[in-house]
């Protein structure tokens, strides 16, 4: 009985989350004439799969895809390395000004991006990074508050005896981190990687401001090209949205079991 309720709830909820996307897919498949019919047609009369290919070729989306992949992979790598170091520093050491510094870490999450945008633009312009992918990659190598916070919260839940035992055996802190902590952090590192990939993949404001030339554009910038000042190519937007959602969804689908399953099986609890 309880199982039935659980499944009913799960199915109902997932319908809520999936239904609007169903519309996105069918919109992408419809013909121009069918787009705006009311009452809406649930299914297109002809399934125009060619719409996907057409939308993809309106602009150099292969190129956008390449740029997005470069940005996403390099910056994700940066986040993993830098945030692990920093989070460990905050979680496991006591040092002068630690709490104050950590508050500053958190405070940086609260800075609205619109404020620092223009000064940042000036800075990157001075460095000659405008219209390159660097502004989208390099800052990731210096940690992001959200992930530092997330990883720090996780490391704090690991028993300290682990570190201490290893330290007594003569291991340095870096060895402790690499040999003891990082293996246990697997799930949360995957979580960070997945989250960062998602936000990187879908970032719009950053690429918008820092990139000028279409050959440097990322997928979301390409997508936004369908939305002009005076009109929207809804069909292309939906088609491209469906296509560019597939890689992050696939990543998520394969990663999620490690994220939620992993922690329970590390054997550190109980």
């Amino acid at each position: 009985m309880k199982k039935v309720t659980t499944y009913t709830l799960l199915i109902l909820c997932s319908l809520l989350f999936i239904a609007p996307l169903f519309w996105a897919v069918t919109t992408a498949l419809k013909s121009q004439q069918e787009l705006y019919l009311f009452p809406p047609k649930w299914f297109p009369s002809v399934w125009r799969f060619s719409n996907f290919a057409e939308a993809w070729s309106i602009q150099p989306f292969n190129l956008f895809m390449k740029n997005t992949l470069i940005v996403t992979l390099l910056s994700t790598l940066g986040q993993l390395v830098s945030c692990t170091l920093v989070a460990y520093g905050f979680a496991r050491f006591q040092f002068k000004g630690r709490d104050g510094l950590f508050l500053i870490v958190l405070a940086t999450m609260m800075i609205p991006w619109e404020v620092t945008m223009i000064p940042q633009y000036m800075e990157f312009n001075y460095l000659g990074w405008i219209n390159t992918l660097k502004p989208l990659i390099v800052p990731s190598w210096f940690g992001s508050a959200y992930f530092i916070f997330l990883l720090r919260q996780f490391i704090m839940t690991l028993p300290k005896e682990l570190d201490e035992a290893a330290t007594i055996d003569g291991a340095g802190r870096m060895t402790v981190l690499l040999r003891i902590i990082v293996p246990l952090m697997g799930p949360s590192l995957i979580l960070v990687a997945v989250f960062h990939m998602m936000s990187c993949w879908n970032d719009y404001l950053g690429p918008l401001i820092f990139l000028n030339d279409q050959t440097k554009y990322t997928l979301t910038l390409g997508l936004s090209q369908f939305k002009g000042m005076h009109g929207v190519d809804m069909q292309s937007i939906m088609a491209i949205t469906c296509l560019i959602s597939i890689p992050p969804l696939a990543v998520f689908f394969f990663a999620q079991r490690y994220i939620v399953g992993g922690i329970a099986t590390t054997g550190i609890k109980g």
Binding site: N125, D213, G228
Partner: peptide, 24 residues
């Protein structure tokens, strides 16, 4: 000729460009 398509973000892009003395 580098055609820079700012689409819906036109004002924002121009603002950033002029603000940093790097306009089209």
């Amino acid at each position: 000729v580098q055609v820079e398509a700012y689409a819906d973000g036109f004002d924002q892009k121009l603002a950033a460009g002029f603000g940093a003395a790097n306009p089209p």
